[in-house]
Design a binder for these strands. Structure first.
Length: 429
DNA sequence: TCTGGGGTCCTAGGACCC
DNA sequence: TCTGGGGTCCTAGGACCC
């Protein structure tokens, strides 16, 4: 049996854990540069603020309704996510972390009643130990588990937990569910399906296999099978290493100077390298890209990317050297740049590393020991305690983040102070 | 004035090989 | 006039997810 655990309004919920006065109030969290809305509490949804809405378009509503607004605080959300996932892994045979706020669990099969009891317990423990509310759905396949979680969230009578195993119930639910709600059916496919008169998930299950294969490829066919209870999207289990690692950011304001763009690229490259080492991989190619602001139709536009190859490495210093060389080839002066990024690709795992006789990529040369020390220090004393000089200190490319909450769980200076008496913020724990 | 970031998978077509 | 067949690898582009 597969369960899908989904944290409710995750980022907004994280903010609430550390400031309970936000409970019952509309809360939104903004993307980088405070650009658009990426998380909303139920109260904010009720006010009609859509997902992905540009923040500036809702300024008036936000002020009028007293909506609490936060810049992203990924250090906090990442840490809270870890805590939730740790608890989940105690309650499952295996876990597949699907995103920062979602995980598939493999549960022992059992009667619907015992399954419900199990997920209610998980629901209760996660809330008690982390403060994060979750929705849990259980079914035979991942796609149906997604449907079940959807119900757990929408249907208040489920109190956040739904077991969807009864064949008759599945059928009636699928007949009422719009195809666009199904996991794996996006905007494009919904439009296509509508042309053939396919409106509900049930309609999709009644479509001919060959027809689906021809029009929607194997991806569409897998979805149909999953809806019919036949597992076709494999449960991956404990996370596999990433095949590509990307770090890219829009700049807080547009940048012209080569020097600052180079610093941004070096910074992104260093961030990629940390992620790369965390999963014990070595990269042997990277893409570097830059582009101007698409939204400024009045300004000249330029975008370019370049892929460079090199002997597999996980060393920040070498990777930054490559990134700088790549940037030099694509940078064109005279443009106002808005975004730059680095993508590392073509990984080899440490164990399988093909030794190149002429390059030393083992962990005992001097640069590598330096990088290892750098990781240790930054792990212990916080991100960016030590940086590579190429990353620069001025941070001209810095994000605009005017409303970031404290990093309660990951920075010593930001730890919550508990006061006694009327100022107490936590009633239990 | 102001519009995110990080991923995965699939397909078609071209290059190349025997 | 006729112009193989089967395979692999790579890339770009499309679609989708959270």
């Amino acid at each position: 049996m597969i369960a899908l655990v989904d944290c409710n309004n995750f980022y907004a919920s994280c903010e609430r854990v550390f400031d309970p006065s936000l409970n019952g109030k509309p809360v939104v969290v903004l993307s980088n540069n405070d650009g658009c809305v990426i998380a909303r509490s139920n109260e904010a949804k009720a006010l009609g603020i859509p997902m992905g809405a540009p923040a500036f378009k809702y300024k008036q509503l936000v002020e009028a309704e007293g909506v609490k607004v936060f810049s992203t605080n990924f250090a906090l959300y990442g840490d809270m996510s870890h805590r939730v996932m740790n608890i989940l892994s105690d309650y499952a045979r295996d876990i597949e972390v699907y995103s920062i706020d979602e995980a598939f669990l493999e549960l022992e099969s059992g009667s619907p009643e015992s399954l419900l009891e199990q997920i209610r317990e998980i629901h209760r423990i996660v809330k008690k130990h982390t403060g994060i509310p979750v929705s849990i759905g259980v079914a035979q396949t991942k796609t149906l588990a997604k449907v079940a979680t959807h119900l757990a969230k929408k249907d208040l009578t489920t109190r956040g937990c739904k077991v969807l195993t009864d064949q008759y119930e599945i059928k009636t639910i699928l007949d009422r569910l719009p195809v666009s709600e199904i996991w794996g059916i996006g905007r494009r496919t919904t439009k296509k399906l509508a042309m053939w008169g396919v409106e509900s998930a049930g309609d999709l299950t009644r479509l001919d296999d060959d027809f689906i294969l021809r029009e929607l490829t194997v991806v569409g066919l897998r979805t149909k099978k999953e809806l019919m209870g036949e597992p076709s999207v494999v449960f991956e289990g404990t996370s596999k290493p990433r095949k590509a690692i990307c770090t890219a950011r829009s700049f807080g304001s547009m940048i012209r100077d080569y020097e600052y763009i180079e610093q941004a690229v070096a910074t992104h490259c260093a961030a990629c390298a940390v992620k790369l080492r965390k999963q014990h991989s070595f990269a042997s190619s990277m893409m570097v890209f830059v582009h101007t602001n698409y939204f400024r139709k009045d300004l000249p536009q330029y975008k370019r990317n370049i892929v460079v190859e090199f002997p597999a490495t996980q060393n920040s210093i070498e990777l930054i050297r490559q990134a700088k060389e790549a940037l030099r080839k694509i940078y064109k002066p005279g443009y106002d740049y808005k975004k730059a990024g680095v993508i590392l690709m073509d990984f080899q795992q440490a164990e399988a590393l093909q030794e190149d006789m002429f390059t030393d990529n083992t962990l005992d040369d001097k640069d590598n020991r330096l990088v290892e020390a750098l990781d240790l220090v930054n792990e212990k004393y916080g991100r960016n305690t030590l940086k590579i000089a190429d990353e620069g200190l001025k941070n001209k490319h810095a994000l605009k983040q005017t409303r970031r909450s404290n990093s309660y769980t990951t920075r010593w200076n930001d730890i919550l102070e508990i006061k006694s008496g009327s100022d107490r913020r936590h009633s239990d724990d």
